[in-house]
Simulated assay, not measured.
Amino acid sequence: MSPSAVVLLSGGLDSTTVLAFAKAEGYEPFALSFRYGQRHEVELDAARSVAEAVGVVRHVVCDIDLRTFGGSALTDNIDVPKHSSVDELPVDEVPITYVPARNTVFLSFALAYAEVVGATDIFIGVSALDYSGYPDCRPEFISAYERMANLATKAGVEGAGLRIHTPLIDLSKAQTIEMGMQLGVDYSLTSSCYDPDSQGRPCGQCDSCLLRLRGFAEAGLADPLLYQVGKS
């Protein structure tokens, strides 16, 4: 019998690749997405399409309203920063698109889901290379969280323990895309933009779009998405 795993699935490029990776590694995936008050809720439509295409045991969408706190361009009345190229992205600072404690919150729900379905493995698509400078995408955070998880859960105390897998942590966006292509990922189903239009088309100018576009360019591939500014 294949082991079960909880996979955090936003519907974006990274989490979709991780879902395909977990499936290829022989896990039976239980996908977990969040409606957390994000302005780019179109990503949930993408997550549903991805979960159906890749094949999951169950896909749960949890409702948690981080707009209650705000503090991010993704959950508050703050403009999403736009740039003309990746070179303009700020360095050595946490951008306003960072959602306070988001991965900490998401992983907490993943722990609960894992315990209920009997999974000892959790997959999350964080990367320490091509990302926007978020502190909760670093390997130090994941290692600390895994230690905490094994202190704070029944599975950690009485069972085999919980493991948090980060298969993209050392990969560039181009390497992630190359991995996904080898796994047969259909990136036309994904959504990465922080500020899509009413039709769900990506802006092509936010941090996430620019990093995604650079990844496809470095991989020698065309992004299958249709961008508002014609960058695909």
Rank of each mutant, 00 (worst) to 15 (best):
E158Y: 14
V94N: 08
T97K: 02
Y113T: 09
S132G: 12
A152L: 11
F109S: 14
T153E: 04
A155W: 03
I124C: 08
A101V: 14
R147Q: 11
V116Q: 13
T97P: 04
I122C: 05
Y98V: 12
L89S: 08
L111Q: 12
T97E: 04
L107Y: 07
P90Q: 04
V94H: 09
V126W: 06
T153W: 06
G133E: 08
A101F: 15
D92F: 06
V91S: 15
P100V: 09
A112N: 05
N150K: 01
I142K: 01
G133I: 05
P139K: 10
P135T: 04
A149W: 04
L111V: 13
R138C: 02
T153A: 01
E140R: 11
G156K: 00
A119R: 12
A112P: 04
S132W: 14
A149E: 05
R102N: 01
I96N: 15
E146G: 09
A101D: 14
S108W: 03
A144M: 13
P95M: 07
F106K: 04
F123T: 00
D130R: 03
P135A: 02
D136H: 01
G133Q: 02
A144Y: 10
D130L: 06
E146Q: 11
C137K: 09
V126M: 07
A101E: 13
L111D: 13
I96A: 15
G156P: 01
N103D: 14
A128W: 01
S143I: 10
A128P: 00
Y131P: 00
Y134T: 11
E140C: 06
N150R: 00
G125Q: 03
E158T: 14
Y131K: 00
S132P: 09
F141S: 04
V94E: 08
D121Y: 03
E140N: 10
A110H: 10
Y145I: 03
